[in-house]
Structures are given as structure tokens and as C-alpha cells.
Amino acid sequence: MKHEPKTAPSGAETHGFLGEEFLTWIWFRWETEGGEFHLPGGRVVGVALDDFLTFSAPSDDDTEQTLRHGLPTRTEEARTALRQGRRLRRARMIVAEGPRQWSVTVDGASLRLSGAKMPEDAEECESENDRTADRTANWLALHELVQSLYGMFLRERLADGYLKSAGEKQAHWMQQ
């Protein structure tokens, strides 16, 4: 008898690796090109990894590795994990666009955001309604920035010849 799953698998279950590759790509681009991303629509955004990284387990038998505080991207443990071909499972990052700055932890497998901190309320906010409108715009902006960065990553990652060009450069960086 054939057993059918009760529900179709979600993208988090089937394509979670892409979110993890996305976080690792952000790190690669930040270290090798300075973390400035030119997004469609003329938006320029700065991204940097912050003080929290988790590397995914290569298999069910292995353990996740988490590095916190200080500058975890500069540690020998982080470099070793990259040399072993590990992807980032979660990362705390700082995202800046113009005067606005967000801090957020992104879970690669689900692209869920946690511990997000919006920019300070705009000085022009005089009422609770103003503050709500400002924060509402900031929540949307954070979502759109992550989506645009992810779209940028996908265009590069899914392009013909990726493995021989940008992918090979990243592989080289990971082995350093």
C-alpha cells in the first residue's frame, strides 16, 4: 500500500537549504565586497553579520554549532566550520538603509525573523498613531529588504554557470 503524506511539504522542509545558503552568501559578500548591496529600484543597503551565528549540522548525527558574542565571524571555529562546508543555519545581522538601521536574527531554513529591532522612531512622530505608522513602515521595509536580498541571491545562485563563476569564488573563500 502506498502512503501519501497528509499535506504537501512546505518550502521550509524542501528548500530550507536555500535559506541557509543565502545567509552564507551574505557573509561571503560582506567579507569579500564590503556588504553594500545595490537592490532593484535603486535601493542601496548595507548588511553586516553581528554577534550570533549558528552553523547547520551536516547530518542528523552531527550537532549544530553556535557562536555568540564578540565577533564570531572572525573566530577560528567559524573558519573551520566553513572549511568543512557547513552552511549558516541562523545569523544575527545588521541591515542599514540611509539613516535607518535594523537588527534581526534570520533563521535560514524558514526565513523567519526573530529578535528584530526596528530603527528608532522618527523625530517627527508626535502621537501614538504617528509612531504606529512609522513602525508599520519599518516592519514592511525590513521584510522587503530581506526579500530583495534573497531575490538577488537567487538570481545569482540559479544562473547558468554559477558553479564555475560566483559559486567557485565562494568555495575558494570558504576554504581560506
Binding site: 518550502g11 543565502f22 535560514g108 526565513l111 531575490g151 540559479l158
Partner: peptide
Amino acid sequence: SDPLQLGFQAGLDPETMHKL
């Protein structure tokens, strides 16, 4: 939203969507 759904929302061309 997940890595697949967010990809569908990211304005990719049909060929890239297929590859995704």
C-alpha cells in the same frame, strides 16, 4: 513565507522560478 514562497514573491523570471 519560506525559502520557496519568498522566492516566488521575489520577482524572478519564469525560467529562474522553474530552476528554483
